[in-house]
Amino acid sequence: MTQKNLESEVQLAPVETRRASEAIYDQIKDMIISGDLKPGDRLPSERNMMEMMQRSRPPIREALRMLEGSGFIHTIPGSGGAVVREITSASVEEPLENMISLKQISHLELLEYRELNEVAFVGWAAERRTEADLAAMAACLESARAVTDDLDAFITTDIKFHELLTASAHNGVLSIVNRVLSRIILDLLRTRLHEYPKEESRKMCRDILEMHMEIYQAVVQQDSKKAQELMHHHLERFRDDLSL
């Protein structure tokens, strides 16, 4: 994306209330959300921001760190300042994934949320799925059937099936959250299942595939209640099998 040097056009107001860094953060964030600042626009230099906002350098730097941590801006070495990022799903997903990875959210909390979340959306998937959704899920299940003896390959198809179910609910928020959960659960599954004896882990893979097939059939039949009951049972058993 071509960067635009719009520093002279950006007008920031003096900050007088609350913690200065938070007020600076909110002002710039609101300009990005409203479209006054667009992806590729360059923020004023720290010196110019100090003059515009009548604040010292430390709160301005803190606000810029907060904006970068939230995914609103990024600093390009040698560019002379911060640039507004294009807001994508990744900018929302990364902070959540980092929180989970840093164990600010436990695996148990994650799986409890997953049970609540997936039981709800599988009902919507049964009601809203398209023929293309069904075809993608069927292909995924066939791929899973072919790799039940290959633990890592099977785990990948397992996560993919749940992602396809999410997509079949046709809800953008669910898709964003599920992508984050899927990456964390993928790592958790690989770690835990490799701790089991090989034959036991293969049996678990076959059992998971059977449960996925039953859920798929309920979605095909647009039986949302049955799909939810099956998903609830599947996720409860998943948590029990992993001893979480």
Rank of each mutant, 00 (worst) to 15 (best):
I159W: 00
R192I: 06
E195H: 04
E214C: 09
L209I: 06
I184E: 14
L186I: 06
E210M: 11
A169I: 01
L181V: 06
R206V: 05
H194E: 05
H212L: 09
D158P: 00
D158M: 07
I184R: 13
H170V: 00
L174N: 13
V180G: 11
V173N: 13
L165H: 06
R202L: 09
M213D: 15
M213R: 15
A169S: 12
I176K: 10
I208Q: 14
E199Q: 14
R190Y: 00
A169P: 00
A167S: 13
R179I: 04
S201A: 13
L189T: 05
T191C: 07
H194S: 08
N178S: 15
I208V: 14
S201F: 01
D187E: 13
D187L: 10
R183C: 06
E214S: 11
D158I: 03
R179H: 14
L174H: 15
S175T: 12
K198P: 00
K203V: 05
N178P: 04
K203T: 12
H170S: 04
T157V: 13
K160G: 02
E214W: 09
D207R: 08
L164Y: 05
R192T: 06
G172Y: 07
N171T: 00
A169N: 02
L186T: 14
R183P: 00
H194W: 01
I176P: 10
A169Q: 01
I185R: 11
M204C: 12
I159E: 13
D187G: 11
L209R: 03
R206G: 04
L164G: 02
L165I: 15
Y196T: 06
G172H: 14
L181C: 07
P197Q: 01
Y196C: 08
K203F: 02
R206F: 07
L188M: 09
H194Q: 07
K198W: 07
R183T: 08
R206P: 01
K198C: 05
V180A: 00
T166A: 08
I159S: 12
T191P: 03
S168P: 02
K198N: 08
H194V: 01
I184L: 10
M211I: 07
Y196I: 09
S168C: 05
P197T: 06
L164H: 06
D207T: 06
